[in-house]
Design a protein around this nucleic acid. Structure first.
Lengths: 191, 191
DNA sequence: GGATTCATGTAAGAGGTTACATGATTAT
DNA sequence: ATAATCATGTAACCTCTTACATGAATCC
């Protein structure tokens, strides 16, 4: 199963709070997500077309007296489902945390969803498991270069786990709209 | 100044220890760099052609009695210069540490270069400076999401700095380095 | 007789960037 | 007047992946 590129979900997320036209989406992603997620204007319109073909979006043209016509996009029920499924899934790869996971957290809070803590918890669990397999492999590694590689990856994972438990936790708990529990997992007292 | 994709430098690195043909390069990168750097067979031949066009490589066809002809590639002086310039430059972006920087360290040790410690030191310096600017920006950040983003990036940088000072340091200083020995005559040494 | 190793490539496609192309309105 | 904002797109190109294509030699 090939997962769709994350950029498309950012667009879905922008539309989750109501129908918007292309330029609007651009503004929203730029001002709110900032440097975390840059979508070029060209790419945006290409992706909007693609998402409409896939029936996750539909559009209607809104004529304006003084401006070029706008194409207003809105989520279809399928699109909404796809977005929420993406939103609450932890990322499989560590490299996707930096952009993709951050964006998930953004939308969860921005759109007023609950379930952020659960997402963080499942991401921690996933990283915990990954860390274990890497530690295993590190033990078995034949040469020093491999060890160096595993060390780097493991260090990165630990850093993200720490971040998830502290920064991400408090980001979600601020505002107090959902119950905050840092009781993330049973078996890892290790740091 | 657009930097060349790092994959090409891995190929140059493989050839730095002596002329090789495509299949050989593939084997070498696979067995030595392993999962750190995967180059598909198709990509390899495309890149070899590109590098030859760029005059960083030259090739000659070596006929074999019992096998299909091999095209043996070797570094030109320009190629060698380009490789060494790449080899001793720290990576500008944190995301490139995972693959590109690791590979630099591999080649420095594998080829018996000195100057690894200096590279590590300059990479640390670069990250240190980056950390400072990020800390500055974090202070100025208007919303909590931006703070979260900066926190993640800063944590990642700190993790890498720690790794550079410990793991990378001991990797370079350890004895039993494989000093490269050239095997210049064509098909003798292999299998 | 069938799988694996040796050995080299082409072609299509996915996902993205940069450049190009258009044009009206509004703010300075 | 001219720059910025609003508003939409196409085309070319880059890097990498996957699939396709070929074929002899050797190992089991």
């Amino acid at each position: 199963m090939k997962t769709r590129p994350a950029t498309e979900y950012a667009i879905l997320g922008a539309l989750r709070s109501g129908p918007k036209h292309g330029y609007d989406i651009l503004q929203l992603l730029e001002t709110r997500l900032g440097s975390t997620w840059y979508v070029s204007t060209s790419q945006l319109y290409v992706l909007l077309k693609k998402l409409e073909d896939r029936k996750w979006l539909r559009s209607s043209v809104a004529a304006q007296r003084k401006r070029p016509a706008k194409r207003v996009f809105s989520l279809t029920p399928e699109g909404e489902r796809a977005f929420e499924q993406w939103l609450f899934s932890p990322t499989k790869h560590v490299r996707d945390l930096r952009i993709e996971f951050l964006t998930k957290l953004f939308f969860i809070r921005d759109l007023g969803f609950s379930g952020g803590e659960a997402l963080v918890a499942s991401q921690v669990k996933l990283l915990e498991a990954l860390k274990e397999t890497l530690l295993e492999r590190r033990k078995r590694s034949k040469d020093e270069f491999r060890e160096l590689v595993w060390d780097a990856r493991i260090a990165g994972i630990l850093s993200w786990m720490e971040w998830l438990k502290t920064s991400a936790g408090s980001f979600l708990s601020e505002e107090g709209k959902t119950l905050f529990s840092l009781d993330l997992d049973g078996e890892s007292g290790i740091n």
